[in-house]
Design a protein around this nucleic acid. Structure first.
Length: 412
RNA sequence: GGAGGCUUCGCCUAGUCUGGUCUAUGGCGCCGCACUGCUAAUGCGGUUUGGGUCACAAGCCCAUCCCGGGUUCGAAUCCCGGAGCCUCCGCCA
C-alpha cells in the first residue's frame, strides 16, 4: 500500500486531537514489514530453484539436495512466520489511525464546529409542543407501545405517521433518481470485513449491534452496505451514485439521557442515504454536491436550518470532512442534526479494495456519503417545525402529492 | 436443514485421478505492430492481479489456480475446515 506523507498524517492526528505517536509506530511497523517480506521473498526464491534442482537431479544427487532442501524449508517457515507477525502489527496500527482530515477543517471538538450558513427563519411558535405530544395527538407515533414491545428508544409509526414515512421515502427517492442516483434497497446485515472496511469498528464499535451467533453486524447506516457493494472491484466508469434505503440500527451506547423522549434518537430507524464513488480529484466537489442535494431536500420540506462544518475531533474515523445540516426544532428552541455528509476520500476504498483504472496502475477511488432523509428524526422535525396554533400540522407542498394531497394533519 | 456437483490469470477452457520446467493450455475479447486504399480479413507480438527492486523505463524477484489450515524437500494437483454458485429434497414470507 502506498505510504501517506507522515507529516500530513501527523498534522491530521494533531488536528483531531488524536495520538500522534501512532505515526511513528506506523512507520516503524511498515519498515519492519518490508524487511520481513524481502527476507521471506529471497528464501522462497532459493527454495523454488532448489526444488527444480531436486526434480531434475539424478538418483545419486537427490539425497544430498533433499537434505539441503529440508533445512531451507525450516528457514522459509520461520521467515514466513516473521512476515505474518509484521503484517499483523502493521494492520493493527493502520486500523487505529483515522482518515487524514481535509485542509480547512475546524480544529477542536464537538462544540468547535463552524456555522457555514443559516437558511430560512425559525418559525415563531408560542408554547410549542414537542413531536411526542403532537405525534400522540395525531395517532402518528406510539412510543409507549414501542417501549412495551421492544424497549426504550423504539416506537411504532401508525396511521399518518406510517404514511409520512412512505411519503418521505418516495419524495427522497424521486429527488435522488432525478439527480441520477441509482435507487438501491440494501441489506441491513453485513459481514465483519465490510463493517471493518467502512471504519465503524474502530473507536465506535460499541455503537454497533453484532449478531454473535452468525458473525454478522446490523448496519447503523446503509452507507456500510453501499460501500461494500463494490468491494474488491475495479470500477470502469466514475462517478457511481446510489441512493440506498435500509433500516439502520444503533446501540446508542454512551448517549444515556440524551433525547430519551420521542423518536429523535432511537435504536432503529429507516433512512435514504446517498452514496458516491468518484475519482480522488472529484471528491471535494462531490461533497459540495451532496450537501446541495441535502439542502434541496430540506428546502422542499420548508424547514429552517443551518449548515455546519464539523470540527476535526468530532469526525468519524473514516471522514476527512463532514458537514451536518441542523434543522430548527421549536419545542427545543434549537437546531438539531437532520443530515450529515462525509467525504471519506480513500479511507474506505483502500480497506475494501475498491479501485479504478489509473494512468500507471489501479488507483483507489474516493467514497462519499450523505443523508437524504433519516425518516424518524425528519418526522419528528416536521411535526415540531410545522405545528400550528390550532394543533394541526402544516404539510409542505412538496410532500402533498405523496400524502393524497393533504395540506394539513389534524387530530382525528 | 439434508444429498450431490462445481469454483483455474476480463469471459470460456486444458491441467487435478498418477504432486516436481505448471515459470498454467487453448479460444474469445482487448492492446500494439505489420500488411492491405478503405468501419473488415490475415500475420506477428503482448495481455491475471498484488508487492518488491528500479529512473513513474527495460529487466529481474516474490506471492497469487475461491478462502483458511495441514501433509511434503516440493501442492492448481493430496487431506481437513470454510465460503460462494448450481441441481434435487425439506421448510418458509
Amino acid at each position: 500500500m502506498m505510504r501517506d506523507d507522515p507529516d500530513r498524517v501527523r498534522a491530521s492526528q494533531r488536528t483531531r486531537g488524536a495520538d500522534e505517536s501512532l505515526v511513528d509506530a506506523l512507520l516503524a511497523a511498515d519498515d519492519a514489514r518490508r524487511a520481513a517480506v524481502a527476507r521471506a521473498d529471497t528464501l522462497r526464491g532459493e527454495q523454488k530453484s532448489l526444488g527444480r534442482d531436486v526434480a531434475r537431479a539424478s538418483a545419486d544427487d537427490r539425497p544430498a539436495l533433499l537434505a539441503k532442501a529440508r533445512h531451507l524449508a525450516d528457514e522459509v517457515k520461520a521467515a514466513e512466520a516473521d512476515q505474518a507477525a509484521a503484517d499483523e502489527t502493521l494492520r493493527e496500527i493502520h486500523l487505529a489511525i483515522p482518515n487524514i482530515v481535509e485542509d480547512g477543517v475546524p480544529p477542536g471538538g464537538e462544540d468547535d464546529f463552524v456555522t457555514l450558513e443559516i437558511v430560512g427563519t425559525p418559525p415563531r411558535v408560542d408554547d410549542p409542543r414537542d413531536h411526542v405530544e403532537i405525534g400522540a395527538a395525531l395517532k402518528a407515533i406510539d412510543t409507549e407501545r414501542g417501549a412495551k414491545v421492544s424497549g426504550a428508544r423504539f416506537y411504532f409509526l401508525t396511521g399518518i405517521g406510517a404514511q409520512l414515512e412512505f411519503a418521505l421515502i418516495n419524495l427522497a427517492m424521486a429527488q435522488a433518481t432525478e439527480a441520477g442516483f441509482v435507487p438501491i434497497i440494501a441489506p441491513a446485515l453485513v459481514k465483519p470485513e465490510i463493517m471493518q472496511g467502512t471504519g465503524f469498528l474502530g473507536a465506535h464499535d460499541a455503537e454497533v449491534y453484532r449478531l454473535a451467533d452468525d458473525d454478522l453486524y446490523l448496519v447503523g447506516t446503509s452507507e456500510v452496505a453501499l460501500a461494500g457493494y463494490h468491494s474488491g472491484e475495479i470500477l470502469e466508469s466514475l462517478p457511481l451514485r446510489y441512493a440506498g434505503f435500509s433500516s439502520c440500527f444503533r446501540r446508542e451506547a454512551g448517549s444515556y439521557g440524551k433525547d430519551t423522549k420521542g423518536i429523535i434518537r432511537v435504536h432503529w430507524f429507516d433512512k435514504v442515504e446517498m452514496f458516491s464513488y468518484v475519482g480522488v480529484d472529484e471528491a471535494r466537489d462531490e461533497h459540495q454536491r451532496l450537501l446541495a442535494w441535502e439542502r434541496e431536500f430540506l428546502d422542499k420540506l420548508e424547514l429552517a436550518y443551518r449548515v455546519i462544518d464539523v470540527a476535526a475531533g468530532d469526525l468519524g474515523s473514516s471522514a476527512a470532512r463532514k458537514f451536518d445540516i441542523e434543522a430548527w426544532f421549536p419545542s427545543q428552541g434549537a437546531y438539531r442534526e437532520l443530515t450529515s455528509t462525509s467525504n471519506c476520500t480513500t479511507f474506505q476504498s483502500r480497506r475494501l479494495n475498491i479501485r479504478t483504472r489509473g494512468e500507471r496502475s489501479n488507483a483507489p477511488v474516493a467514497t462519499l456519503n450523505g443523508t437524504l432523509c433519516a425518516i424518524a428524526r425528519t418526522i419528528a422535525c416536521l411535526l415540531d417545525h410545522h405545528q400550528q396554533p390550532d394543533g394541526s400540522v402544516h404539510v409542505p407542498a412538496a410532500l402533498r402529492p405523496y400524502l393524497g394531497g393533504r395540506e394539513v394533519l389534524t387530530p382525528a
